[in-house]
Design a protein around this nucleic acid. Structure first.
Lengths: 201, 201
DNA sequence: GCCATGCGAAACGGTACCGTCTCGCATGCG
DNA sequence: CGCATGCGAGACGGTACCGTTTCGCATGGC
C-alpha cells in the first residue's frame, strides 16, 4: 500500500482504460441539453440518452448534474484571461469587453446564462462560474480602473463603480432576456458612447 | 339558453361564491415559491401545500402553472406606466428608469427575472412579461429618444439604439447575477454618467 | 491466458408531481 | 328548506428521473 502512495505520478492503470469517446460524448450532450433546456431540466438520464452511453458511466466519473454541468460549461468556454495593459485605459477596456463577448458568443453564452440563473438548486453551479470566470475578469477591471483613476485618465467626478457598471452592463443585460451577447458593432457603439463620459482623451 | 346569453353582466352566481381568501392565498404562495425556487420548480402541489388549499381549487381557476405564474407575477408588480414628458429628455429618462427600478425592487424583481429566464418550457410566460410590462416601456423609450433626437437634444453622433442600451442596461444586468435591482443612488450614478455622453445640456 | 477495470443495457425501489376524480362538508341564493 | 356551486382532502394511475446494482461483453497490461 505504501508504494502505491509513494509514486505520485502513478501511470499504471490496470484494467480497461477510460473511454475518451464516451467522455466527450457525455460532455457534449450535457452542453447541448444545458443550452436547449436550461440547467434545471438537465438530467442524467437525458444526457445518457443523448450521448448514447449508460448512466453508470456518468455516475462513475461525475458526482451528479451540478458537477457535470460545470465541467461541460468550462469545456466549451474559452477561459483565456487576456490582460490588456497598454497605456490607454480606454483601449484596454475595449479590448477586454470585446474579448469577453467573443468568449460568450454562441453556445457558451447561452450556457453561461443558464448556469448563472438556474443554479438555485445547487449554488455551487452559479458560484463555479463566478469564481472561475467572472471574478478574475471583474478583479482585473477594478484594478485597471483604479490604475486609470490614479493616472488621471478619468474625467472629473467619475465614480469607478458606476463607470464599470456602465461599461460592462450592455454586454450582460441581453442574456437576461434570452438574447445572445451583442454583436461587436453594437458593443462598440455602446462602449464608445460610455467612454465619452468616462475617459479623458 | 337564450336568456343566459342575453344578459352580458349576469350577476346571479347560484352556488357558493368563490373564496377570496383562497384566491389570495394561492397567488401569494405562487409568488413566494416563484421567487424562492424559480419558475421551473414552481409546482401546483407545492402551491397548494404552501397556500393550504386543495389542488382542485387551483385547477378549477387556472389552466396550469404558466397561467398561475403570470397572474401571481402581475398581482405583485406595479404596472403603472408613467409617461414623463417634460421638455428635458434627460429628466424624462431619469424619471422613467428610477420609476421602473421602484417597480422591480424587492420580490417583484426576483419574480421578474425568474419569469424571463425560466420561461423556456412555456414561452407564454416570458412573452407575457414582455408584452405586458417590457414592451410598453421599451416603446415609450424609443419614441422619447426619437423625439429627443429630432429636437436636437442629443450630442453629435449618438446612435439612439446604443444610447438606450447604455441607459437601461445597468438596471437589468444585476438581475442576471441573482442580485436585486440597483439602489437609486447607484442607478443615478450610472445614469448621470451615461447622460454626460448622450444629452446636450 | 489471466485479470482488473470500463463499458452499455437494463432492472430496481424510491420520490415527486402530473391532471383527474370522488367524497363530504361549507356557503349562499331563492 | 332545497339546490347549486366552491371548498379541502386525498386517492388514483401515469410519467419522469433519481442513484444503485447486476449482467455480460470489451479492452488492455502482465
Amino acid at each position: 500500500m505504501a508504494d502505491t502512495i509513494s509514486t505520485p505520478t502513478d501511470s499504471k492503470p490496470r484494467g480497461r482504460p477510460r473511454s475518451r469517446a464516451s467522455r466527450e460524448a457525455i460532455l457534449l450532450a450535457a452542453l447541448k441539453l444545458l443550452i436547449r433546456d436550461g440547467y434545471e431540466k438537465l438530467t442524467i438520464e437525458g444526457v445518457a440518452r443523448e450521448a448514447g452511453t449508460g448512466k453508470s458511466t456518468i455516475y462513475r466519473w461525475w458526482d451528479g448534474r451540478s458537477d457535470l454541468a460545470v465541467e461541460a460549461f468550462f469545456s466549451a468556454i474559452d477561459e483565456t484571461l487576456e490582460l490588456h495593459e497598454s497605456g490607454s485605459a480606454e483601449d484596454d477596456f475595449r479590448a477586454q469587453i470585446l474579448g469577453m463577448a467573443g468568449q460568450l458568443r454562441g453556445p457558451a453564452g447561452r450556457a453561461f446564462a443558464a448556469m448563472l440563473v438556474g443554479g438555485r438548486e445547487n449554488p455551487a453551479v452559479a458560484s463555479a462560474v463566478r469564481k472561475r470566470w467572472l471574478d478574475p475578469r471583474r478583479d482585473w477591471a477594478r484594478m485597471r480602473m483604479a490604475w486609470a483613476a490614479e493616472a488621471g485618465q478619468l474625467q472629473d467626478g467619475v465614480e469607478p463603480r458606476a463607470a464599470l457598471a456602465l461599461l460592462y452592463s450592455p454586454l450582460y443585460s441581453p442574456l437576461l432576456f434570452g438574447n445572445d451577447v451583442p454583436s461587436d458593432k453594437d458593443l462598440r457603439a455602446c462602449f464608445d458612447l460610455a467612454a465619452r463620459a468616462i475617459f479623458r482623451r
